[in-house]
Amino acid sequence: MSLVGTLKGFGVTEIFQLINQQMKTGTLVVNAPRAKISIFFSDGYIRGIYSDSWDADPRVKILVDGGFVKHKDLEVAKGGEKESLNWVDILIAQNKLSKALLDKITNVVLRDLFFDILRWGEGNYRFEEGVNASREMIECNAQAENIMLDTLRSIDEWPLVEQKVPPLDYYPVVIMPVTEGIVQKFKLTDKDIRIYDLIDGNKTIDTLINESLETRHDVLSSIVRLMDAFLIEVFPKETIKGSDRFSKMQTVFAGLKKVFAYILLLVTVVALVYISRPGLYVPLWPNPVVTQYIYAQKEIANNFKYSKQAIPLLHSDKDNYNH
C-alpha cells in the first residue's frame, strides 16, 4: 500500500509525522522538478537518504574541502572498495575517519536535504512500505522530528539572511572581541560563537562552511548575525591586507552612521516644523464653525426657556385646531 500527496500545504511534514507516529518502515520518495529524493525509514527512524541530483556522495566534498580527509587517502579507499566494503568502512578501519565525524557530516547532508524538501512548493511524494536501498544510499540514523524542527527554524529566518549574505569567496575578519554583553544584546547562540571562533582572517566564507560541520544555511545565518553585531566584517581578497585600517574605518563609519541617524531625524523634524509652522499649534477641536451653530441652538433654546415657552410634553396636542 502506498501513500501519495503533493508538497503544497506542508503535506510532507504531515507524512513525516505519520511515519514517525506509526513507526513505519518504508521509502519516502519526494519528486520535485529539481530532484528526486528518497528517504528510507525503519521503525519511524531515518536510516538512509539518496538524491538523484548527487553526482557523488556529498559527504566526500565536505570531508575533502573541510580538510578532514586527504584527497589521496580517499582515492586509495575508493580504489579498495569491494562488494561488502565501501570507502567509508575502509577509512574507518584505517583510523583516518572517525564514526562520530562521519555521523556529524551525514547529519549536515541530511539537514541540507530537508531544507530543500521543506522549501519546495511544487512536486509530489510517495511512501511505499519496504526499503529498496541502493548502493548510493547514504546510511544514517536520525529522528525526523529533531531534524525537521531545526530546519523549520532555518527556513523561518532564511528570507532575512538571504538578502544579507555576502559573496562566499569573501573573507570574514574579526573587528571586535565578543563579550557577554554583546552575546546577550544580539541574542547570539552557541553556534554563532563557534563560527566566530573559526574566523581567523584567512578563511573564506565557503571554507568556513566546509570546516564548521554545520549546514550552509546555519553558517550563513551566523555570519549575518555576527556582522549585524559588528563583531566581524567581510572583505574581498584584494582588500584583506589592508583590513586593519579598513576595519578601523568601518568602526568609525558605523559610529558616524549612528550619529547621522539622530542628526537626520532632528533636521527632518525641524524642517517639517518650519514648513508647517503657521497652523501647527492651532487646535482642530473644537471647530469654531460647529461651536457657532451649537451656540446658536443653545441661545434659541434659552430664549424659549426664559420666555416660558417650553414644550409641555404631557399637555401638548398632536393636532392643530382651526376655529
Binding site: 552612521k257 549612528k258 539622530y262 531625524l265 492651532v282 482642530l284
Partner: peptide, 27 residues
C-alpha cells in the same frame, strides 16, 4: 535589519515615533 547599522533602541524608537507622528506636520 533594513538599516543594518547598530542603532540603539532609543534612536529606532525615535524614528518610529517620527514615522507614526508624520501626519501631525501636515496639520
Amino acid at each position: 535589519n533594513i538599516i543594518s547599522a547598530d542603532l540603539s533602541n532609543l534612536a529606532l524608537n525615535l524614528w518610529i515615533g517620527f514615522i507614526l507622528m508624520l501626519p501631525y506636520f501636515f496639520r
